[in-house]
Amino acid sequence: MNATGSVSGAERVLLRLADEAIKMGDDVVLVSPSGPILQHIHPEVRHRECKPIGLNGLRSPVSILKYGASLLRAAIVLLPLMRSSNVLVINNTLASPLAFLFQKRLLWLLHDVLGNDLRGAIGKTASRFFRLVIPVSYAAANPLPTGTAVRVVLNGTPLRESKENFAREGTTSVIGCLAALTPWKGQKTLIKAVAELAGVDFRLEFAGSAFPGDEEYARELRVMAKESPVGEKIHFLGNVDPYMTLQSWDLMVLPSVAPEAMPLSLLEALSMGVPCIATNIGGSLEILRDINGDLVPPSQPHALAERIRELLNDEHRRMVLGEAGRDLVSTKYSLEERTKELYWVVAASTDMAGKVPPRR
């Protein structure tokens, strides 16, 4: 089940799980709102429509009532499917209270690091009622309360051809940020940071679009970029093919101001040998510390600017980090291995457990 109909890193993991299940001969039904996700589902996956489950925050009594109503509508759609299905996997934190209704029948593919806010409290409370919670990183697993059934399965990504094999024009350094335009991704910190690079020949590219409900934030980013002293060097690309875009980037920056579970954009960049700078929290820390990567504190524009400047001036270190990143993806974050592992973890926790994974 997908609660939004959009396609971000979390949805791509769910779609890969569905593809693997189809390959193994299973029947798969995707419950989701209509949206971009329908353009990416396997032809053999059946679709059941549900209304979105609000993900824009719980800021008032009215929004809480709307949230509760969206959960009830989703439960009505799911009830007949639960009678005929072995398992239901959800991948959205605000859909987690459905576990109260379908106790021990649901699995949760957890893509969030649950904090101490209302959203985190909802997820932590609901977690004990799942048959199994499957965090995509240890950063996501750590906040779960004692008594939760947990099995970590790391995200994965394909190992792509190194960016070094693609020709590029010009000598301008290209800094990229591959992330949805949403406040916790920290794009404002990056815009402030590059304002300190006035004497550097660079181009900053933001690849990604606004999450539903974050359109105003996206407008604020564009205004902020336009008013920056280096505004002519800042560009918004919208939704792009990440691998085509990464070919021209000298480095990628992921300036998240809140912990991410396991950012796929970081893995995608590493898979092509693009050196990365990220904040020292959550899954970004979990990934980059394995290669002695470049980490900075969140919401610290000056520290970020200095690290960008240092890395742009050190071609050898960029090459070393790029090679180490590709090695890390091939050994720890293989898409094929992680997807198969996820499938068999799901199968083993359900009535599908009669299927035995192939011996290696």
Score class of each variant (00 low, 15 high):
Asn2Asp: 09
Thr4Trp: 03
Gly5Arg: 04
Ser6Thr: 07
Ala10Gly: 06
Glu11Val: 03
Ala18Glu: 00
Glu20Ile: 07
Ala21Ser: 03
Ile22Phe: 12
Gly25Tyr: 11
Val29Gly: 01
Ser34Gly: 12
Gln39Leu: 10
His42Asp: 10
Pro43His: 10
Val45Leu: 11
His47Asp: 11
Arg48Glu: 15
Glu49Cys: 11
Lys51Arg: 14
Asn56Val: 10
Asn56Gln: 12
Arg59Phe: 10
Ser60Lys: 03
Pro61Gly: 05
Ser63Gly: 13
Ser70Asn: 08
Leu72Ala: 14
Leu72Asn: 11
Arg73Phe: 02
Leu78Phe: 05
Pro80Tyr: 00
Pro80Arg: 01
Leu81Glu: 07
Leu81Pro: 02
Met82Thr: 09
Ser84Trp: 00
Asn86Asp: 11
Leu88Lys: 00
Asn91Tyr: 06
Asn92Pro: 00
Leu94Asp: 03
Ser96Tyr: 03
Leu101Ile: 13
Leu101Arg: 05
Phe102Lys: 03
Lys104Ala: 14
Lys104Ile: 11
Lys104Cys: 14
Leu106Glu: 04
Leu109Cys: 01
Asn116Ser: 12
Leu118Thr: 10
Gly123Lys: 00
Gly123Leu: 03
Thr125Gln: 07
Ser127Val: 08
Arg128Phe: 02
Arg131Leu: 13
Arg131Lys: 10
Arg131Ile: 12
Ser137Asn: 01
Ala139Ser: 14
Ala139Val: 13
Ala140Val: 08
Ala141Tyr: 05
Asn142Cys: 14
Leu144Phe: 15
Thr148Trp: 02
Ala149Glu: 11
Leu154Cys: 06
Asn155Phe: 12
Asn155Ile: 07
Gly156Phe: 02
Pro158Gln: 10
Lys163Ala: 14
Glu164Arg: 15
Glu164Pro: 03
Thr172Phe: 03
Val174Tyr: 02
Cys177Phe: 02
Lys185Glu: 12
Gly186Trp: 04
Ile191Val: 14
Ala198Tyr: 02
Phe206Lys: 09
Gly208Leu: 01
Ala210Met: 08
Gly213Asn: 03
Asp214His: 06
Glu215Ser: 11
Tyr217Asn: 02
Arg222Met: 10
Ala225Cys: 09
Ala225Met: 02
Lys226Leu: 13
Ser228Val: 09
Pro229Tyr: 11
Val230Ser: 11
Val230Leu: 14
Glu232Val: 07
His235Val: 05
Leu237Asp: 09
Gly238Ser: 12
Val240Ala: 10
Asp241Ala: 11
Met244Leu: 15
Gln247Ser: 06
Trp249Ile: 07
Leu251Phe: 01
Leu251His: 00
Leu251Ile: 05
Leu251Glu: 01
Leu251Ser: 02
Leu251Gly: 03
Leu251Asp: 01
Met252Ser: 05
Val253Ser: 05
Met262His: 06
Ser265His: 12
Cys276Gln: 10
Glu286Tyr: 01
Asp290Tyr: 04
Leu295Asp: 04
Val296Asn: 01
Val296Phe: 02
Val296Glu: 00
Pro297Ala: 04
Pro298Met: 08
Ser299Lys: 09
Gln300Asn: 12
Ala305Gln: 04
Glu306Asn: 13
Glu306Trp: 07
Glu310Pro: 14
Glu310Val: 10
Arg318Asp: 08
Val320Lys: 03
Leu321Ser: 03
Gly325Asn: 09
Tyr333Glu: 05
Leu335Glu: 15
Glu336Thr: 14
Glu337Thr: 06
Ala347His: 04
Ser349Ala: 15
Thr350Trp: 04
Thr350Gln: 04
Thr350Met: 06
Ala353Gly: 08
Lys355Ser: 09
Lys355Arg: 12
Pro358Glu: 15
